[in-house]
Amino acid sequence: MGKLRVGLIFGGRSGEHEVSLRSARAVIQALDGERYEVIPIAIAKDGRWLPPAESWRMLPSASIPSTPHSSPERDAVTIIGDLNWQGLVHLGEDGTRVERLDVVFPVLHGTYGEDGTIQGLLEMANIPYVGCGVLASACGMDKVAMKSLFRAVGLPICRYLWFLRAEWETKPSEVIKRIEHEIGFPCFVKPANLGSSVGVTRATDRASLEAALTEAALYDRKIVVEEALDVREIECAVLGNEDPQASLPGEYVVLDRRAEFLDYTEKYGQTGHVEFVTPAPVAAELVREIQQMACRAFRAIDGAGLARVDFFLRRDTDELLINEINTMPGLTDVSGYPKMWAASGLDFPQLLDRLIELALERHRDKARNRTSLAH
């Protein structure tokens, strides 16, 4: 049996482009070369899909392998498929070449990658892919939809409100008054559809709130405002399809008070202000509660493959609240998701093996549905 051909899609048009490159590099380095052949498929910031030769060069510190299937830089890439076949087409001046893909690993973070868009393309092409489907990805990206689903299944969340950018632009004084009345200060202002804390600001008074709302409105038409609590930030990794399993939790520990919250720089800039500790120093009973709630959150959005669930543990009451779910968590060398599974006894190569197995398993299950419909 030959190697499994893995189409690794990375980059993308979102504000998390660089994180995606780092995740892709980590995945390529960890995948077993005896089992897999990686076909890199980069998406540039302007949305162009790049052929393998050019895709390799986008990866941080990556050397270009000698691959006969790599295409000239002028080529474009298209995903194609049908009920019995799936692949990757290179469209170039020197002719069209087709490569079969056994599974796609979309290591894309944020919009146009983690929000159901790429998942819809892969569903239409009938290609097995790692991670959540269209519905779960879309709901996991949109914080308003996500919180509505959590609330519907009885999961505890912090106080929040949301509104459209148009409301802020046309009725700013009303929006400010509503936030002051319903949420108060301090509070967090967030774009509804971004990850990695991009566009997130902590507001402590009316002036900083106005600046925060203007900032969030640059990124999304939907804005979320949440109460700011004195909390410990706990995370838990989930893995599976129908019967998801949860890892030991991890915790972001603030080492320097200059880190007011975990923004993009603190998460990925290695500032030294915070440290991710695995496993989190919490009691065994709380570990079980975190794991159970993480799996409930995963099921609430109809998750598949993988997700990271973020929690707030209130310092004043010890109440555990769900903050959000991330359906394509970072897989970089500083990311919490692989670290939590490593602490739980599953190293990164084994974790990637399992993610690919889950993708193929889910695809086979969907094929059963198509067969039933055909009859």
Results as ranks from 00 to 15, higher is better:
residue 63 S to W: 03
residue 39 I to H: 07
residue 93 E to L: 12
residue 70 S to F: 11
residue 105 F to M: 11
residue 46 D to T: 12
residue 31 L to R: 05
residue 89 V to I: 15
residue 96 T to M: 06
residue 104 V to K: 08
residue 104 V to F: 04
residue 102 D to F: 01
residue 112 Y to G: 02
residue 75 D to T: 07
residue 110 G to P: 05
residue 72 P to E: 07
residue 116 G to K: 08
residue 98 V to L: 09
residue 20 S to G: 11
residue 86 Q to M: 09
residue 64 I to L: 11
residue 88 L to E: 02
residue 76 A to P: 03
residue 61 S to P: 00
residue 56 W to M: 03
residue 76 A to R: 11
residue 21 L to W: 00
residue 44 A to I: 03
residue 68 P to G: 02
residue 57 R to A: 15
residue 18 E to M: 02
residue 72 P to R: 14
residue 73 E to V: 13
residue 100 R to Q: 05
residue 42 A to Q: 03
residue 87 G to R: 09
residue 28 I to E: 02
residue 37 E to W: 12
residue 70 S to W: 06
residue 65 P to W: 00
residue 102 D to E: 04
residue 83 L to M: 11
residue 98 V to S: 11
residue 19 V to K: 03
residue 107 V to M: 06
residue 55 S to P: 01
residue 95 G to Q: 10
residue 19 V to H: 02
residue 102 D to I: 12
residue 19 V to D: 02
residue 85 W to K: 13
residue 25 R to A: 12
residue 57 R to W: 02
residue 119 Q to W: 04
residue 59 L to F: 01
residue 117 T to A: 11
residue 42 A to I: 11
residue 24 A to N: 03
residue 81 G to T: 07
residue 27 V to L: 14
residue 86 Q to Y: 03
residue 31 L to S: 07
residue 32 D to K: 12
residue 75 D to V: 01
residue 83 L to D: 10
residue 18 E to R: 09
residue 97 R to M: 09
residue 99 E to W: 14
residue 66 S to P: 02
residue 93 E to N: 12
residue 117 T to L: 08
residue 112 Y to S: 13
residue 46 D to P: 00
residue 106 P to H: 13
residue 55 S to V: 03
residue 64 I to S: 08
residue 80 I to W: 08
residue 21 L to S: 00
residue 95 G to A: 06
residue 82 D to E: 13
residue 67 T to D: 07
residue 62 A to I: 00
residue 40 P to A: 14
residue 86 Q to D: 05
residue 110 G to S: 10
residue 73 E to T: 14
residue 97 R to N: 06
residue 82 D to F: 03
